[in-house]
């Protein structure tokens, strides 16, 4: 059993099926020690602010963010994330995880500096592997 690469991964999506699939893949890949699921952006933003205040504890290393949600949506979360200080922000990589396969959606997402990558659902082991490979010092594991 290898040690998980990341401490905390956040899944922000109102689609329960998608969350189920993603959690399963993440845990089977030993991608993160803990996976936190938010089905509304409201909750996610509240936790983000809280974690940022606690100087690291509970702050996610990776966030997979869906865009289309009722009420506050993925774009609202990005807004909230942008307001954080650069020191805090650099601890976390923000991935957009969307059911869209539309190029224009990917382009729109990539216009945000804080978004690392636009990933079309479903999340796969290959995608997680790529993320892990891109982490500095990942070859040690």
């Amino acid at each position: 059993m290898s040690v998980a690469i990341y401490n905390t991964v956040w899944l922000i999506d109102d689609d329960e099926l998608a969350n189920y699939v993603n959690e399963k893949i993440i845990s089977s890949q030993h991608f993160a020690k803990s996976t936190v699921v938010f089905t509304t952006v409201d909750e996610a933003v509240a936790s983000l602010d809280l974690a940022a205040g606690q100087k690291g504890t509970g702050f996610p290393d990776i966030v997979f963010l869906d865009m289309e949600m009722p009420g506050l949506d993925g774009w609202d979360f990005i807004e909230a994330f942008q307001r954080l200080s650069p020191d805090v922000k650099k601890q976390c990589k923000l991935y957009m995880l969307s059911s869209s396969i539309d190029k224009s959606d990917a382009e729109r997402a990539m216009a945000y500096e804080d978004i690392c990558c636009f990933i079309s659902k479903p999340l796969t082991t290959d995608v997680l592997q790529t993320i892990m490979d891109s982490k500095p010092g990942s070859s040690q594991s």
């Binding site: 689609d15 099926l17 998608a18 189920y20 699939v21 993603n22 399963k24 893949i25 089977s28 289309e68 059911s99 869209s100 396969i101 539309d102 079309s120 659902k121 479903p122 999340l123 796969t124 082991t125």
Partner: peptide
């Protein structure tokens, strides 16, 4: 069409994701 492409893609992506779980080694 735009909306439909999203809305149709969403359950399809779920089906793809769920089926991929069968390939996980520790299932």
């Amino acid at each position: 069409t735009h909306v439909v492409s999203h809305k149709l893609r969403s359950p399809v992506a779920n089906i793809l994701g769920l089926t991929s779980l069968f390939n996980l080694p520790d299932i």
